[in-house]
């Protein structure tokens, strides 16, 4: 009786983990392994080759696409963190009806389907769209030129990601004790000192975590760049779609998937390192 109890204790956790484990095995590990093996094969002969990778790292157009993707993703991360942090600070240290409305608005983008959001934004910012028409009715010509450009892509990405970053940073700001700030003020610390000596040290970890998530979701994004992006350079999500669906070059598509996977892993590594680091100061 005792023994079977022990056995139960030992195996129950595994049973709980099993469904999730099989899902991961089936939907993540298996595709990654097949992509990897497919990416190392020649399209015609199926022999081992590195040509598929060689293509993406030597072709001028593809190098441009990789650089463009990184540019858009990194700019999105930087701006989303900066603006998201400002938003979080405002919400954390103001408690009035306006700040409550801001909180409600912050959550809103998470409930709007991406496709609907992108089309709505396009309607407003496209040349000849709502903004242009308002300008025209006021008697001057104005074209935002946000369609088919990196600026437009980054703007839409920010629309999606600022609220997300703000919510994550807000969670860490909740850890900053009001008492710490008040006592710092009592001994004569100004606003900037409070920010750099108390608030930032308590939240910097969350910056990396939020940044990692924002980077990951944007580096492989498809909907926004497909609908709003130009013809060249293009973001890798769209390139991947073309290789797979239009050119039917599955080997190159697999190689690009692996490259995207590695790019995402970079931010995953940041995430893991930050999480493992010991809290030093508290």
């Amino acid at each position: 009786m005792k023994k079977s109890d022990d056995l139960q204790k030992k195996w129950t956790p595994y049973l709980y983990v099993l469904p999730a484990f099989f899902l991961i095995l089936l939907l993540i590990v298996y595709p990654v392994v097949t992509s990897l093996s497919l990416s190392l094969k020649n399209k015609v002969t199926s022999h081992f080759t590195l040509d598929n990778y060689h293509y993406f790292f030597t072709d001028q157009v593809q190098l441009g696409n990789i650089g463009y993707t990184l540019f858009v993703a990194v700019m999105t991360v930087i701006l989303a963190l900066l603006l998201g942090f400002m938003l979080a600070l405002y919400i954390r240290f103001n408690n009035n009806s306006l700040s409550k409305t801001v909180v409600a608005l912050t959550v809103l983008p998470q409930f709007i389907p991406g496709l609907v959001a992108v089309y709505s934004i396009m309607l407003v910012v496209r040349n000849g769209g709502v903004l242009s028409r308002i300008a025209q009715s006021l008697g001057f010509t104005f074209n935002p030129n946000l369609m088919y450009s990196a600026n437009g892509l980054i703007m839409v990405n920010l629309w999606f990601n600022i609220p997300f970053a703000a919510l994550l940073l807000l969670a860490s700001l909740a850890n900053v004790r009001q008492a710490s700030i008040e006592s710092a003020r009592d001994i004569g610390a100004d606003k900037w000192t409070v920010l750099f000596k108390i608030i930032l040290p308590a939240t910097y970890k969350q910056f990396f975590i939020a940044g990692a998530f924002v980077f990951m979701t944007n580096v492989g994004s498809f909907t926004t760049p497909f609908l709003m992006g130009g013809n060249n350079p293009q973001m890798l999500g769209v390139v991947l779609y073309k290789e797979f669906n239009q050119y039917l070059d599955y080997n190159k598509a697999a190689a690009l998937s692996v490259i995207l996977f590695l790019l995402c892993s970079l931010s995953a590594i940041v995430y893991v390192i930050v999480n493992l680091r010991q809290e030093k100061w508290r």
Binding site: G128, G129, N143, N145, M147, S149, F226, L227
Partner: peptide
């Protein structure tokens, strides 16, 4: 658009440009 030649994506992409004048 913004001084750069653009070929829109999808049949609807050009139709939107025509609709907007």
């Amino acid at each position: 658009s913004g001084g750069k030649v653009v070929y829109p994506n999808k049949n609807q992409g050009t139709m939107d440009l025509l609709a907007n004048g």
